[in-house]
Amino acid sequence: MDFGNNTGAPNNQPYEPYPTAPVYPQTPHHDPYGYHPYSHIPPHPTTMPGSVRAARIISWLFAALGIGLSVLAGVIGNPELAGALVAGLLPALFLALFAFGYTTNGNGMRVASIICAAFGILWSLGGAAQGLPPGLLGIAANLTILILLSKQISADWFKRPH
């Protein structure tokens, strides 16, 4: 058997023509120009979701309350209470600083805020057990911030392209 001989080919062509791939019509979702069948729905959030905005406002209010109460305690003349307030609300101050970056920073800011809120819950539990500030208010505020930032819509906001 001779594989190099192609004499049996029609029209006496020296070689058989190369088979072409079948041509299929393109559907809209396979368009090379980026057509998306749900183009009316934006692929990422364009405005800050309510959960992120609420976590931002809660962290600012909680830090402002802590600063105001510690200044008030210092003015009244109780430095021990002022020191306890500053120490107890330290995670709230960090959360308030992180909240300024919620519009421009990425997912790392969300993760850092979640970790800081979890640390604030533990910090507040220790304070509540000893009767020190922030007590139950700190547990509630930090838990609320943690839950709001753990939602999927919050993750989508922080993972959007900048």
Rank of each mutant, 00 (worst) to 15 (best):
H36G: 09
H36L: 15
P37K: 11
S39K: 12
H40T: 14
P42T: 15
P43T: 13
P43D: 14
P45N: 06
T46G: 14
T47N: 08
M48V: 06
P49F: 00
P49N: 06
G50H: 07
G50C: 07
S51G: 02
R53A: 14
A54V: 00
A55I: 03
A55Q: 00
L65G: 09
L65R: 08
G68A: 15
S70E: 13
V71S: 04
A73L: 09
A73N: 06
G74E: 09
G74L: 15
V75H: 07
G77F: 08
P79E: 09
L81I: 04
A84T: 04
A84E: 06
L85N: 00
L85E: 00
V86M: 12
A87S: 05
A87Y: 04
G88W: 00
L89N: 14
L89V: 10
P91T: 09
L93N: 05
F94N: 02
F94E: 00
L95V: 06
A96I: 05
F98D: 02
Y102L: 06
T104I: 14
N105Y: 10
M109Y: 13
V111P: 03
S113L: 04
C116L: 15
A117E: 02
A118V: 07
F119N: 00
G120R: 05
I121V: 12
L122N: 03
W123H: 12
W123M: 09
S124V: 11
L125W: 01
L125V: 11
G126I: 10
